[in-house]
């Protein structure tokens, strides 16, 4: 009886995948279909703007709803500048924490530190924005920016009036927001480096630090790069917190103290007030560009991070 049962289940199991696989495939296709639909719809809505401005949409910095002339360069600049700034701050920090967690921390310290870092990811972005406005911005305005201006004022990045609202504030907020992503994934990557690799370097007379720098990080470099791309993707798409602290002025200035504007911010700020077709269409085109950038970043990142645990890309010269 038991054996019959098993045989029946077996048979059933062999038959059932047809159904199940079919359903799963349907849902998979549905998602892909949705994606295509979104691109199609946004693309259609953006068509007027694409048709009207052509390539100059990317090169013009005139954003003038009153005269119906639109160029997206300030927003592209603001997005890239704030995101890159966030990476410059977040990558060393995240890598440092990841190295600490995977290579150095005593076991009792690992969980609390990971927990604190992960909690950062759970804070709603509007709360980051509030914190940025009421804590970070005054603090930067009344201290840090003066100090930076005095110490590094010969660089164009640290010149000009200091308001506490602008690229620097946005970059710092974004850095904190992407820190958990980069840290968690880099840590996974480092933990997946085989112990035999570390032992090989130690047995050659390498110190712990030499082992990390020469063996562990190179072994995980592809995955770490993926983690950074994923973080960048998050920074580029972040809307609320950035909108609250970046100043929302469509201008291009090298100074980190000056206000700027990002692609998500302009969409969320102007969408409800756009009266002309062209204005709406220009916003749609910005959305399309944003979508393309984040999609690309995420695809690259996922492809790279998936390689965790496999042999890293070969090559490298002396």
């Amino acid at each position: 009886m038991a054996i019959l049962e098993i045989v029946r289940i077996r048979r059933g199991k062999f038959r059932r995948p047809g159904w199940f696989a079919f359903l799963a495939r349907c849902f998979g296709l549905l998602i892909a279909g949705l994606m295509v639909l979104i691109i199609w719809e946004v693309g259609r809505a953006a068509w007027l703007s694409i048709h009207t401005f052509g390539f100059s949409f990317f090169t013009s910095s005139r954003w003038d709803p009153v005269h119906d002339v639109f160029g997206a360069l300030p927003f592209i600049y603001g997005t890239l500048a704030s995101s890159l700034l966030a990476l410059i701050i977040a990558v060393p920090l995240s890598l440092g924490i990841a190295i600490f967690l995977s290579e150095m921390a005593p076991p009792w310290l690992k969980d609390p530190v990971s927990f604190i870092v992960e909690i950062l990811a759970a804070i709603p972005s509007v709360v980051y924005g509030l914190w940025g406005i009421f804590v970070l911005a005054p603090w930067l305005r009344d201290g840090v920016e003066d100090w930076l201006g005095n110490a590094l004022g010969f660089l164009p990045f640290f010149q000009g009036p200091r308001s506490g609202i602008g690229l620097l504030t946005a970059g710092i907020i974004l850095a904190i927001m992407i820190l958990p992503t980069i840290t968690a994934i880099s840590r996974e990557v480092l933990v997946a480096v085989p112990q035999s690799q570390r032992e090989a370097m130690l047995a050659l007379g390498g110190t712990r630090w030499e082992t990390i720098v020469r063996v562990v990080l190179p072994y995980g470099r592809v995955g770490i790069f993926g983690a950074v791309m994923l973080g960048l993707g998050r920074a580029v798409g972040e809307t609320m917190a950035v909108t609250m602290v970046i100043g929302n002025q469509p201008k291009i200035s090298l100074s980190l103290f000056s206000p700027a504007y990002t692609m998500p911010s302009v969409i969320v700020n102007e969408f409800s007030e756009a009266v002309t077709q062209l204005h709406l269409s220009a916003l749609m085109e910005i959305g399309l560009i944003l979508f393309a950038i984040t999609l690309l970043l995420n695809i690259v990142a996922l492809l790279l991070v998936r390689r965790i645990g496999t042999v890293p890309v070969q090559g490298g010269r002396m």
Binding site: P194, S196, Q197, E199, A200, M201, L202, A203, L204, G205, G206, T207, R214, V215, P218, Y219, R221, V311, P312, V313, Q314, G315, G316, R317, M318
Partner: peptide, 23 residues
């Protein structure tokens, strides 16, 4: 660290560094 430099070790499974060339 100095001791390990004077006493070398070869492991059971070959463990070359995959990101480095032979040289």
């Amino acid at each position: 660290v100095m001791i390990r430099r004077r006493i070398g070790m070869v492991f059971q499974k070959p463990n070359p560094f995959p990101t480095m060339s032979i040289l």
